[in-house]
Protein backbone atom coordinates (compact mmCIF):
# COMPACT_ATOMS: atom_id res chain seq x y z
CA UNK A 1 0.00 0.00 0.00
CA UNK A 2 1.54 3.28 -0.98
CA UNK A 3 0.45 6.87 -1.14
CA UNK A 4 -0.55 6.65 -4.80
CA UNK A 5 -2.99 3.84 -4.11
CA UNK A 6 -4.48 5.64 -1.16
CA UNK A 7 -4.88 8.74 -3.27
CA UNK A 8 -6.54 6.68 -5.98
CA UNK A 9 -8.94 5.46 -3.40
CA UNK A 10 -9.68 8.97 -2.31
CA UNK A 11 -10.14 10.06 -5.91
CA UNK A 12 -12.66 7.29 -6.52
CA UNK A 13 -14.26 8.06 -3.20
CA UNK A 14 -14.55 11.69 -4.22
CA UNK A 15 -16.50 10.82 -7.34
CA UNK A 16 -18.72 8.48 -5.36
CA UNK A 17 -19.24 11.19 -2.81
CA UNK A 18 -20.46 13.70 -5.37
CA UNK A 19 -22.67 11.14 -7.10
CA UNK A 20 -24.18 9.73 -3.96
CA UNK A 21 -25.02 13.08 -2.43
CA UNK A 22 -27.21 13.84 -5.44
CA UNK A 23 -28.88 10.47 -5.31
CA UNK A 24 -29.44 10.68 -1.57
CA UNK A 25 -31.06 14.08 -1.89
CA UNK A 26 -33.44 12.88 -4.58
CA UNK A 27 -34.33 9.82 -2.60
CA UNK A 28 -34.72 11.71 0.61
CA UNK A 29 -37.15 14.12 -0.94
CA UNK A 30 -39.06 12.32 -3.62
CA UNK A 31 -38.66 8.77 -2.41
CA UNK A 32 -37.33 7.90 -5.84
CA UNK A 33 -34.51 5.43 -6.19
CA UNK A 34 -33.13 7.12 -9.22
CA UNK A 35 -31.95 4.38 -11.53
CA UNK A 36 -31.26 7.09 -14.06
CA UNK A 37 -28.48 8.53 -11.94
CA UNK A 38 -25.83 6.56 -13.81
CA UNK A 39 -27.22 7.88 -17.07
CA UNK A 40 -27.06 11.44 -15.72
CA UNK A 41 -23.44 10.89 -14.79
CA UNK A 42 -22.76 9.47 -18.22
CA UNK A 43 -24.47 12.38 -19.95
CA UNK A 44 -22.38 14.80 -17.96
CA UNK A 45 -19.22 13.05 -19.03
CA UNK A 46 -20.16 12.96 -22.71
CA UNK A 47 -21.29 16.58 -22.78
CA UNK A 48 -18.03 17.51 -21.09
CA UNK A 49 -16.22 15.62 -23.82
CA UNK A 50 -17.91 17.65 -26.56
CA UNK A 51 -17.52 20.97 -24.85
CA UNK A 52 -13.87 20.24 -24.04
CA UNK A 53 -13.26 19.24 -27.59
CA UNK A 54 -14.70 22.37 -29.12
CA UNK A 55 -14.03 24.98 -26.49
CA UNK A 56 -12.41 24.09 -23.21
CA UNK A 57 -12.69 21.83 -20.23
CA UNK A 58 -13.27 24.76 -17.91
CA UNK A 59 -16.34 25.77 -19.83
CA UNK A 60 -17.52 22.19 -19.63
CA UNK A 61 -17.42 22.42 -15.87
CA UNK A 62 -19.93 25.23 -16.14
CA UNK A 63 -22.05 23.96 -19.01
CA UNK A 64 -22.50 20.43 -17.68
CA UNK A 65 -24.09 21.23 -14.31
CA UNK A 66 -26.39 23.74 -15.98
CA UNK A 67 -27.42 21.30 -18.69
CA UNK A 68 -27.96 18.52 -16.21
CA UNK A 69 -29.90 20.81 -13.92
CA UNK A 70 -32.26 21.47 -16.81
CA UNK A 71 -32.62 17.75 -17.34
CA UNK A 72 -33.38 17.49 -13.65
CA UNK A 73 -36.12 20.05 -14.02
CA UNK A 74 -37.66 17.97 -16.77
CA UNK A 75 -37.40 14.85 -14.62
CA UNK A 76 -39.18 16.52 -11.77
CA UNK A 77 -41.90 18.23 -13.75
CA UNK A 78 -42.65 15.45 -16.22
CA UNK A 79 -42.15 12.36 -14.11
CA UNK A 80 -41.63 12.75 -10.39
CA UNK A 81 -44.28 15.31 -9.68
CA UNK A 82 -47.19 13.82 -11.67
CA UNK A 83 -46.38 10.34 -10.45
CA UNK A 84 -45.68 11.22 -6.86
CA UNK A 85 -48.54 9.12 -5.55
CA UNK A 86 -47.33 5.95 -7.14
CA UNK A 87 -45.36 3.39 -5.22
CA UNK A 88 -41.60 3.70 -4.88
CA UNK A 89 -41.02 0.68 -7.03
CA UNK A 90 -43.05 2.09 -9.88
CA UNK A 91 -41.13 5.35 -9.76
CA UNK A 92 -37.84 3.51 -9.55
CA UNK A 93 -38.72 1.41 -12.55
CA UNK A 94 -39.74 4.50 -14.50
CA UNK A 95 -36.27 5.92 -13.91
CA UNK A 96 -34.91 2.56 -14.97
CA UNK A 97 -36.72 2.94 -18.28
CA UNK A 98 -35.45 6.50 -18.60
CA UNK A 99 -31.92 5.28 -18.04
CA UNK A 100 -32.25 2.79 -20.87
CA UNK A 101 -33.51 5.47 -23.21
CA UNK A 102 -30.92 8.05 -22.15
CA UNK A 103 -28.02 5.68 -22.47
CA UNK A 104 -29.12 4.69 -25.93
CA UNK A 105 -29.52 8.32 -26.96
CA UNK A 106 -25.99 9.06 -25.77
CA UNK A 107 -24.64 6.24 -27.92
CA UNK A 108 -26.67 7.41 -30.89
CA UNK A 109 -25.15 10.86 -30.60
CA UNK A 110 -21.58 10.00 -29.63
CA UNK A 111 -21.12 6.48 -30.91
CA UNK A 112 -19.99 3.23 -29.34
CA UNK A 113 -16.29 3.84 -29.32
CA UNK A 114 -14.44 4.57 -26.15
CA UNK A 115 -13.60 8.24 -25.94
CA UNK A 116 -11.14 10.09 -23.81
CA UNK A 117 -10.83 13.61 -22.58
CA UNK A 118 -7.58 15.34 -21.87
CA UNK A 119 -7.22 17.17 -18.62
CA UNK A 120 -7.09 20.92 -19.16
CA UNK A 121 -3.71 22.56 -19.51
CA UNK A 122 -2.63 23.51 -16.07
CA UNK A 123 -3.86 20.31 -14.56
CA UNK A 124 -1.85 17.95 -16.70
CA UNK A 125 1.16 16.06 -15.60
CA UNK A 126 1.99 15.04 -12.08
CA UNK A 127 2.58 16.64 -8.77
CA UNK A 128 4.98 15.50 -6.14
CA UNK A 129 3.08 14.47 -3.08
CA UNK A 130 3.87 12.18 -0.15
CA UNK A 131 6.88 10.87 -1.94
CA UNK A 132 5.06 9.93 -5.14
CA UNK A 133 4.44 11.60 -8.44
CA UNK A 134 0.68 11.76 -8.56
CA UNK A 135 -1.45 12.84 -11.54
CA UNK A 136 -2.39 16.44 -10.91
CA UNK A 137 -5.85 16.12 -12.35
CA UNK A 138 -6.81 13.46 -9.90
CA UNK A 139 -5.76 15.75 -7.11
CA UNK A 140 -7.99 18.36 -8.68
CA UNK A 141 -10.90 15.91 -8.55
CA UNK A 142 -10.32 15.36 -4.88
CA UNK A 143 -10.12 19.05 -4.18
CA UNK A 144 -13.19 19.83 -6.25
CA UNK A 145 -15.21 17.11 -4.57
CA UNK A 146 -14.22 18.18 -1.09
CA UNK A 147 -15.05 21.78 -1.88
CA UNK A 148 -18.41 20.71 -3.24
CA UNK A 149 -19.10 18.56 -0.20
CA UNK A 150 -18.28 21.36 2.20
CA UNK A 151 -20.35 23.82 0.19
CA UNK A 152 -23.30 21.46 0.08
CA UNK A 153 -23.26 20.65 3.75
CA UNK A 154 -22.86 24.30 4.65
CA UNK A 155 -25.72 25.27 2.40
CA UNK A 156 -27.93 22.59 3.89
CA UNK A 157 -27.14 23.61 7.41
CA UNK A 158 -26.96 27.36 7.15
CA UNK A 159 -29.60 28.45 4.71
CA UNK A 160 -33.35 28.45 4.94
CA UNK A 161 -33.76 26.38 1.79
CA UNK A 162 -31.31 23.91 3.21
CA UNK A 163 -33.38 23.72 6.35
CA UNK A 164 -36.50 23.05 4.32
CA UNK A 165 -34.71 20.32 2.42
CA UNK A 166 -33.57 18.64 5.59
CA UNK A 167 -37.01 18.91 7.10
CA UNK A 168 -38.73 17.55 4.02
CA UNK A 169 -36.22 14.71 3.78
CA UNK A 170 -37.04 13.69 7.31
CA UNK A 171 -40.79 13.86 7.11
CA UNK A 172 -42.37 15.01 3.90
CA UNK A 173 -45.93 15.12 5.12
CA UNK A 174 -45.27 17.16 8.20
CA UNK A 175 -43.04 19.50 6.27
CA UNK A 176 -45.89 20.11 3.86
CA UNK A 177 -48.33 20.69 6.68
CA UNK A 178 -45.94 23.16 8.22
CA UNK A 179 -46.07 25.23 5.10
CA UNK A 180 -42.96 24.18 3.25
CA UNK A 181 -43.58 24.26 -0.47
CA UNK A 182 -42.67 20.69 -1.17
CA UNK A 183 -42.96 21.03 -4.93
CA UNK A 184 -40.58 23.94 -5.07
CA UNK A 185 -38.09 22.24 -2.79
CA UNK A 186 -38.30 19.05 -4.81
CA UNK A 187 -37.58 20.95 -7.98
CA UNK A 188 -34.48 22.44 -6.43
CA UNK A 189 -33.34 19.12 -5.04
CA UNK A 190 -33.87 17.10 -8.18
CA UNK A 191 -32.16 19.59 -10.44
CA UNK A 192 -29.33 19.97 -7.95
CA UNK A 193 -28.98 16.22 -7.67
CA UNK A 194 -28.86 15.87 -11.43
CA UNK A 195 -26.35 18.69 -11.69
CA UNK A 196 -24.13 16.98 -9.16
CA UNK A 197 -24.30 13.73 -11.08
CA UNK A 198 -23.35 15.55 -14.25
CA UNK A 199 -20.54 17.35 -12.49
CA UNK A 200 -19.19 14.04 -11.28
CA UNK A 201 -19.27 12.85 -14.86
CA UNK A 202 -17.44 15.92 -16.09
CA UNK A 203 -14.81 15.57 -13.40
CA UNK A 204 -14.44 11.90 -14.13
CA UNK A 205 -14.12 12.35 -17.88
CA UNK A 206 -10.37 12.99 -17.97
CA UNK A 207 -9.81 10.31 -15.33
CA UNK A 208 -11.82 7.36 -16.59
CA UNK A 209 -12.43 6.73 -20.22
CA UNK A 210 -15.88 7.28 -21.66
CA UNK A 211 -17.75 4.22 -22.83
CA UNK A 212 -21.42 3.35 -23.19
CA UNK A 213 -21.30 1.15 -20.12
CA UNK A 214 -19.95 3.73 -17.71
CA UNK A 215 -23.36 4.65 -16.35
CA UNK A 216 -24.30 1.14 -15.39
CA UNK A 217 -20.97 0.45 -13.74
CA UNK A 218 -21.31 3.35 -11.37
CA UNK A 219 -25.05 3.12 -10.85
CA UNK A 220 -25.08 -0.02 -8.79
CA UNK A 221 -22.18 1.11 -6.66
CA UNK A 222 -23.75 4.48 -6.00
CA UNK A 223 -27.10 2.89 -5.13
CA UNK A 224 -25.28 0.69 -2.67
CA UNK A 225 -23.43 3.67 -1.23
CA UNK A 226 -26.65 5.54 -0.60
CA UNK A 227 -28.34 2.61 1.06
CA UNK A 228 -25.32 1.80 3.19
CA UNK A 229 -24.86 5.40 4.17
CA UNK A 230 -28.36 5.70 5.46
CA UNK A 231 -31.43 6.54 3.50
CA UNK A 232 -32.08 10.22 3.03
CA UNK A 233 -28.97 11.12 4.96
CA UNK A 234 -26.87 13.16 2.62
CA UNK A 235 -23.89 13.32 4.92
CA UNK A 236 -24.12 9.60 5.46
CA UNK A 237 -24.10 8.96 1.73
CA UNK A 238 -21.08 11.17 1.26
CA UNK A 239 -19.13 9.54 4.04
CA UNK A 240 -19.94 6.03 2.91
CA UNK A 241 -19.11 7.01 -0.68
CA UNK A 242 -15.65 8.14 0.32
CA UNK A 243 -15.20 5.14 2.57
CA UNK A 244 -16.23 2.67 -0.09
CA UNK A 245 -13.98 4.29 -2.67
CA UNK A 246 -10.99 3.96 -0.41
CA UNK A 247 -11.83 0.46 0.82
CA UNK A 248 -12.49 -0.87 -2.65
CA UNK A 249 -9.34 0.59 -4.16
CA UNK A 250 -7.12 -0.68 -1.40
CA UNK A 251 -8.76 -4.12 -1.40
CA UNK A 252 -8.17 -4.35 -5.14
CA UNK A 253 -4.46 -4.13 -4.49
CA UNK A 254 -4.68 -7.05 -2.15
CA UNK A 255 -7.18 -9.22 -4.04
CA UNK A 256 -9.15 -8.02 -7.08
CA UNK A 257 -11.70 -10.83 -6.81
CA UNK A 258 -12.60 -9.94 -3.26
CA UNK A 259 -12.57 -6.20 -3.89
CA UNK A 260 -15.21 -6.56 -6.54
CA UNK A 261 -17.71 -8.08 -4.14
CA UNK A 262 -17.08 -5.66 -1.29
CA UNK A 263 -19.91 -3.25 -2.14
CA UNK A 264 -22.40 -6.08 -2.57
CA UNK A 265 -21.49 -7.67 0.69
CA UNK A 266 -21.81 -4.29 2.38
CA UNK A 267 -25.28 -3.83 0.92
CA UNK A 268 -26.49 -7.24 2.01
CA UNK A 269 -25.13 -6.75 5.50
CA UNK A 270 -26.74 -3.35 5.88
CA UNK A 271 -30.10 -4.33 4.44
CA UNK A 272 -30.28 -7.38 6.65
CA UNK A 273 -29.05 -5.73 9.79
CA UNK A 274 -30.93 -2.48 9.35
CA UNK A 275 -33.62 -3.22 6.84
CA UNK A 276 -35.11 0.22 7.34
CA UNK A 277 -32.37 1.17 4.94
CA UNK A 278 -34.45 1.43 1.81
CA UNK A 279 -37.61 -0.45 2.49
CA UNK A 280 -38.98 1.25 5.48
CA UNK A 281 -37.98 4.86 5.81
CA UNK A 282 -40.97 6.22 3.96
CA UNK A 283 -44.34 4.45 4.15
Amino acid sequence: MNAAQVLNGIALGSLLMVLSSGLAMIYGLRGVTNFAHGALYMSGAYIAYSVSLHVSFWLALVVVPVALALIGVVLELVFFRPLQNRSHIELGLVTFGLALIAERVVVLIWGEKTLSVDPPPGLRGTTSLFGVEYPTFRLAIIVAAVVMAVALVTWLRRTRTGLYIRAASQDLETAGIMGIDVNRISLIVVSLGAALAGLAGALAAPYVSLDPGMGDTFLIIVLIVVVVGGVGSIAGAMISGMALGIIQTLTTVWSPSVAVVVPYVALVVVLLWRPQGLAGRRV
Binding site: L223, V227, L267, P275
Partner: peptide, 21 residues
Protein backbone atom coordinates in the same frame (compact mmCIF):
# COMPACT_ATOMS: atom_id res chain seq x y z
CA UNK B 1 -37.79 -10.95 4.44
CA UNK B 2 -37.54 -7.71 2.52
CA UNK B 3 -40.21 -6.31 0.30
CA UNK B 4 -40.73 -3.67 -2.31
CA UNK B 5 -37.72 -1.60 -3.25
CA UNK B 6 -35.46 -3.22 -0.68
CA UNK B 7 -36.19 -6.60 -2.18
CA UNK B 8 -35.48 -5.30 -5.66
CA UNK B 9 -32.19 -3.76 -4.58
CA UNK B 10 -31.07 -6.88 -2.77
CA UNK B 11 -31.84 -9.18 -5.69
CA UNK B 12 -30.05 -6.78 -8.02
CA UNK B 13 -27.02 -6.52 -5.77
CA UNK B 14 -26.71 -10.26 -5.24
CA UNK B 15 -27.17 -11.10 -8.88
CA UNK B 16 -24.55 -8.55 -9.88
CA UNK B 17 -22.19 -9.90 -7.25
CA UNK B 18 -22.50 -13.28 -8.95
CA UNK B 19 -21.85 -11.68 -12.31
CA UNK B 20 -18.74 -9.98 -11.01
CA UNK B 21 -17.48 -13.24 -9.58
Amino acid sequence: RASGMGFLMLTLALSQALYQL
